[in-house]
Design a protein around this nucleic acid. Structure first.
Lengths: 189, 189
DNA sequence: GTCTATAATTCGATAGAC
DNA sequence: GTCTATCGAATTATAGAC
């Protein structure tokens, strides 16, 4: 173990505070001073542990989506499962705020954008399995709808999207994802 | 006319430079100094004309979407028309960059987010016409897909979405919008 | 109407005591 | 391992000459 227990606690406190600040204020506005104050330690400790603001950011957004493998599921339910899992990830994100950090900063920070591209290319591309030539395109269309929902619901807080309960949102968006997976759709809404 | 011709030109040069900088760098990173340099004038002129950085930003994102009225169209083609118009707006945005500014800064700036909410609530809500109780929800779902596309294509530059030509993108996304408008879908892709 | 000069902050990062 | 003190740079915004 390269760190003492005390320093490990401090590192975690810094990371938690950093995610909140980066999520609430964005990369530029979030200051090391404010993060350190939230964590109850000195600003210089942040530099000591993470070297720079960029290093701290990279550590804060180091996350894996953990999407479910859809290949074992009935073809007709994959859209619903994928959307529900995605929404559950975001609903549970309030504690850490990692996803919000990532999306929010990917918009103004090229390094974060690259990380976002990689995550969705590998994660979403993988869960839909080896497909035809247009597999990557289908995965990207799914990403566009899911990211659009996350953007409207958790970042822009568009009232009509933010007010929907998770079940209703899943019911509304799942057919679209199912459609991008290759299926025609039958029900409106 | 409250402004001389010379000052009018300067104001326009400032606005054009501001939109580029805000779009490229985001609100926080875009500096008045850089904007003034791009416009070929002194930084103090920006303050003189727009009072503050926030005032300049408000002027830069003062835009109307100008979406088409769908009510006169055949019901089955509304999705396609709406998506194509939306994409055309964004493709033509390179000159001014207003839309990119708005989306990019709405993610980290609450004032811009409020403006974005208002624009989509009034514009998108209006073009789909007076509908049933779930009209606003449908409009918001459409917004989530359209904004998701704009996010992936013009901001995150997700390769599979950014590489598609406009026609292919319209063909892929129009069925989803048509679906949110109330229609079932028949074709995959 | 345009510019120079600068005030007043604030930030990331460093040096070093304990 | 934690903190004090501070440097150097960059920013918004202001005051005033021309």
């Amino acid at each position: 173990m390269p760190f003492t227990q005390r320093s490990e606690e401090t590192r975690n406190a810094i990371l938690a505070a950093a995610r909140r600040r980066f999520a609430d204020d964005g990369y530029e506005r979030a200051t090391i001073r404010a993060i350190a104050a939230d964590a109850g330690i000195d600003p210089s400790m942040v530099m000591r542990y993470y070297g720079s603001k960029e290093g701290l950011f990279a550590a804060a957004v180091d996350v894996v989506l953990g999407l479910p493998d859809l290949r074992g599921l009935p073809a007709g339910r994959r859209g619903e499962v994928l959307v529900r899992h995605f929404l559950t990830l975001w609903e549970g994100d309030r504690a850490s705020g990692v996803l919000t950090v990532l999306l929010r900063s990917a918009v103004t920070n090229e390094a974060a954008a690259e990380r976002m591209r990689t995550i969705f290319a590998t994660q979403v591309g993988a869960v839909i399995g080896p497909a035809a030539d247009d597999g990557p395109t289908r995965a990207a269309l799914i990403a566009s709808q899911l990211l659009g929902v996350a953007l409207c619901r958790y970042v822009l807080r568009l009232p009509e999207i933010a007010a929907l309960d998770a079940d209703a949102l899943v019911a509304s968006v799942a057919p679209t994802v199912q459609h991008y997976l290759g299926d025609p759709l039958d029900s409106a809404g």
